[in-house]
Design a protein around this nucleic acid. Structure first.
Lengths: 200, 200
DNA sequence: ACCTGAACACCGTTCAAGT
DNA sequence: ACCTGAACACCGTTCAAGT
């Protein structure tokens, strides 16, 4: 894949896309021509490495998530399935921060995706992130399904979405003024959610 | 606004957009040319009534939500308990608005409670709202418990909080850029949540 | 005020042609 | 296999011109 001189074209494309995001923010315009011209290749060449623009955006967002999210131990069978899943969800939630940090994070979300003109590129950059998060939760559920801890594999997409919504709600509540025992209430809600998924 | 012969052009545009959605589903195209040609007007005329395509889409979605939403009574035993609870939760969710309205609402929440100094007064005024919502959900659960649709009455506070978190998540997701089939995904998540509560 | 339709500046994708 | 660049079929928006 890689040439002696350096990165493969594929990697240079991803690097250029990451550059654009770094410069213009998460809502950056990752159009074929913008990325291709930055790499110094043609649109056709970009299409050769990423058959659709969606595939490029998804791959970029996947790496951003990988970079932010540390490895989660969903496969550690020494721990009960429900505790493992709660632990993984908690790691996602950790990105929301706590206290003032949580408020800053939610403010960023608002100013980036909500309090702006809802252009196609704002929408697409958010959806790429959203899909990546969804896919990650789905992977966790599939691991647990393989173990037999989760029966209805056909409902995995819906269940993952449900868990994603719970995480969105908890992240918002971390930013809002809260009761003092927030951590405990969070834990209870996470277990109610996870039990709902595992017993479905 | 309306001509003697029938609907105003503005209404005919909205009707045409609704027609396209009815035919092609929530993922319908709703492009300027698609809507304009169905109405039988020019793109310029459409632009005159809806300065941006976003404004058209927001208005269409607002009407779709209004149409989907119906009043539900928690004590109406003609309807299954789970459907009644979902209906009530949906009414709460209706306050979050849809489209641009949902974004404005979430923006207000952010500027009022998150992006401000966390004084005792800010905290108290939010918690008053929060407790009110929580109490309302708890009352619904108590009604269902009296019917025998919910067994563990001692967990009602936790379960109500869980449902509140789901609603917070759904409200946030309404403000964030969303998939086209948001209404359906919302319904699925609400039923997963309600079933988790009623079978606990 | 309401409407027309051409024009503009984008977009993603396809494809014959090169190396 | 990798790359080029023109071409195609879209998109939303603007605007001089009509009624």
């Amino acid at each position: 894949m890689s040439t002696p001189e350096g990165k493969s074209t594929r990697e240079r494309i991803l690097a250029a896309a990451a550059e654009i995001i770094a410069e213009e923010g998460m809502t950056a315009n990752l159009s074929v021509r913008a990325v291709a011209s930055r790499v110094g290749i043609s649109t056709g060449s970009l299409r050769h490495h990423f058959p659709t623009q969606q595939m490029l955006r998804d791959e970029v967002m996947h790496r951003v998530y990988d970079w932010v999210l540390a490895g989660t131990d969903i496969r550690n069978s020494a721990i009960p399935a429900r505790d493992r899943l709660v632990g993984c969800l908690r790691q996602v939630l950790a990105m929301a921060g706590a206290g003032a940090e949580a408020r800053t994070a939610m403010n960023t979300v608002t100013t980036t995706f909500i309090a702006v003109e809802q252009t196609e590129q704002v929408r697409e950059s958010y959806l790429a992130m959203q899909r990546d998060g969804q896919r990650r939760v789905e992977e966790w559920l599939r691991v647990l399904a393989d173990e037999g801890a989760l029966a209805e594999t056909s409902r995995i997409p819906q269940l993952a979405r449900f868990l994603g919504t719970v995480l969105d709600g908890l992240a918002l509540e971390r930013a809002l003024p809260g009761e003092d025992s927030l951590a405990q209430l969070e834990t209870e809600t996470l277990y109610v959610s996870v039990d709902a998924v595992l017993s479905s």
